[in-house]
Amino acid sequence: MTTGRPAGYSAISSYSRVELLHLIQLQRERTIADLVTSTGLHANTVREHLQRLIDDGYVVAESEHRTTRGRPRVLYSAADGAGASSAVQQRKVKAAAERGDLLRRVMPGQQSIELDTAALHQVDAVVEDLMDAGFDPLIDEEALTIDLTPCAHAEAQAAHREVLCSVHLSLMQSVLTEAGGPLSVDGMRSSCDPTECVVQLLHAGHRQ
């Protein structure tokens, strides 16, 4: 499914943006000064990267509430679908569900016997988000897994695999939360092959 964006557009194709997003996922309400100190990037560069992340629905910005004089700072938080919700992310989730419903209506063979409507809409949203990020996800609705092999980032950014995996798992959880439903990210299946990536989901209504 195409999004009309040029190849490589993804906000998280740049490791500098991944690093910023990781810091913001670890701690809410970050300031520009804080992120400059943590990354060593120039303030203008940080602002540009943050705007890209905001435009893609991964980060939200709000002015701090001050009780004293002075210009309020802008605080940046991860759009996790719970404590902070992005209007961009909301639109993406809604559009993904509508496209998924349409596909299932015109192609009866696409009907799921494993997942209910809410869970299907969550899958619709997370699959489209992963495709935007350069992945080619393969869903197993029975096993509740998302196979991202080969990882689009494993070789290009191999030195930062731990951070990359953490950011991507958090983004997947954010999309699932925003979509609303019984599915959540349970973790990544361990593998001896660093390029192999299979994410395990958890259904709140299924006993383990």
Rank of each mutant, 00 (worst) to 15 (best):
A118V: 15
D136R: 15
D56C: 09
D55K: 15
L144S: 05
L144C: 10
A82I: 07
E196W: 12
V59G: 05
S112N: 01
L20F: 05
D124K: 10
R71M: 06
Q111F: 04
L130N: 03
R104Y: 01
S191P: 04
Y9N: 01
L202E: 06
K92I: 12
P150E: 03
R73H: 07
M172W: 06
A96H: 07
D34V: 07
K94G: 12
S63R: 08
E196M: 12
Q173W: 02
Q208V: 02
A78W: 00
E142I: 09
L102A: 14
T2P: 09
G70C: 05
P137H: 05
T67S: 12
Q157P: 14
Y58Q: 08
V36F: 04
A11H: 00
C192S: 14
L53C: 01
P137K: 11
Q27F: 10
S16E: 15
E142S: 06
L176F: 01
T45G: 11
V198N: 07
E142F: 03
M188C: 02
T67P: 13
R91H: 11
Y15C: 13
G109T: 09
S174M: 09
V167M: 00
D193A: 06
C165R: 08
V123H: 07
A43S: 14
G181R: 12
A152V: 14
L23R: 10
Q200A: 06
D186E: 02
V167S: 03
L23W: 04
E178Q: 15
E141G: 01
A158I: 13
D34Q: 07
L35G: 02
Q89A: 09
D147C: 15
L26G: 12
S184G: 07
H42C: 11
G8K: 11
H206K: 04
S16A: 12
L20C: 00
A84W: 04
A95D: 08
V18E: 03
P137S: 09
E98M: 09
L50K: 00
A133Y: 06
S112V: 08
Y9M: 06
A143Y: 01
Q122V: 09
G40W: 07
R73L: 10
T145M: 05
R52C: 03
A11C: 04
V36S: 04
L120S: 01
P150I: 08
T31E: 00
N44Y: 15
